[in-house]
Nucleic acid binder design. Sequence first.
DNA 1: CAAGTATATGAAGGATCCTTCAGTTTTTTG
DNA 2: CAAAAAACTGAAGGATCCTTCATATACTTG
Lengths: 176, 176
Amino acid sequence: MSVGSLYQYYPNRDALLAAVLEGHLTSIACAIDHACREHRGKPVSEMASALVAAFVAAKLRDPEKSKALYAVAAERGGPELITAMQTRMIAAIAAMLASAADAHFEELPVTSAMVFSVLAGSVRAFLEGHAPAGFEAHLEGQLVRLLTAYLQTHQLGPAARAIDGPVGLKTKSPNR
Amino acid sequence: MSVGSLYQYYPNRDALLAAVLEGHLTSIACAIDHACREHRGKPVSEMASALVAAFVAAKLRDPEKSKALYAVAAERGGPELITAMQTRMIAAIAAMLASAADAHFEELPVTSAMVFSVLAGSVRAFLEGHAPAGFEAHLEGQLVRLLTAYLQTHQLGPAARAIDGPVGLKTKSPNR
DNA sequence: CAAGTATATGAAGGATCCTTCAGTTTTTTG
DNA sequence: CAAAAAACTGAAGGATCCTTCATATACTTG
């Protein structure tokens, strides 16, 4: 494909890159949407697994593309697109979390945003190659462990989680 | 300061930006180093608090600068600098974690890298403005909660943590 | 198959950004 | 204070990248 042809489909460089970025983000948002809808009402550990699996699979389907688009994300129009898609994904996560069988989230928006930012941040660090060698094998497993632990921090008290909960944590303010 | 003067101190644009980036990364690495050394032998919850506090404070000291440097980090020379500094910080975290009073880490390099990537990723997401409004107030607290929960996933069994441990988790493979 | 339409191509023009350097200002020295 | 050294300045030159457009190719239609 030649330079001139591109300008027949997009008015300028920014529009072209924005379109590519939008396609990429949309496919990821759809994957997250789907995973979240499929796992409503499940325990948080399953939610964490599903979310991590969906996000990692979507991002690593074409690692080169994902990586290259990080540069585009910072250019004109990028931040707006990202914010919009991110809002959508965080909403999907919030809807799923709200239905958790074994946890209740006092500050759903904050928790959802946190979950998403951890997912996106870790995968980005990995893709940009800053991660130590051999990290790929551990990424998904560690993310599941991390998010499960975080979400279980919000677990319901002994009375409510009698059905299937593992040995519990304190319900609130876990540190200090 | 004029354009010409800059070229009296740096041979070219890349060298100038690399110097600024290096200064920034060094100050952050020092903050992490210090926090890690100060908290050896402590329980993991205190380690998490200290790490989060140090990293967040260092990154948010000059938010505009931190944010602008993300762009530089992707340019020529950036990735090398980042990788070097990151290796240093992950090593510091590993040294601290290895001395935890209430936990043992089977795969120290993986866990340390994970902790760092979560810290860096979340703060970046926040700085780039993709985070929802009012997230600033929650960032630090949520990060502490998240990392504490993750690290406590590696807690020693009932026998070994008799000294001060809270109600424990399973020692290994916490999900599925 | 000829004429018409849609799409493809890449060299040339223009815009933007990096770098240089001749001349000026400030500081130091004897 | 005069002379020399050091540091500063910004317009001009050069390099790189974005965009256009005249021309070529491929496809459609009657």
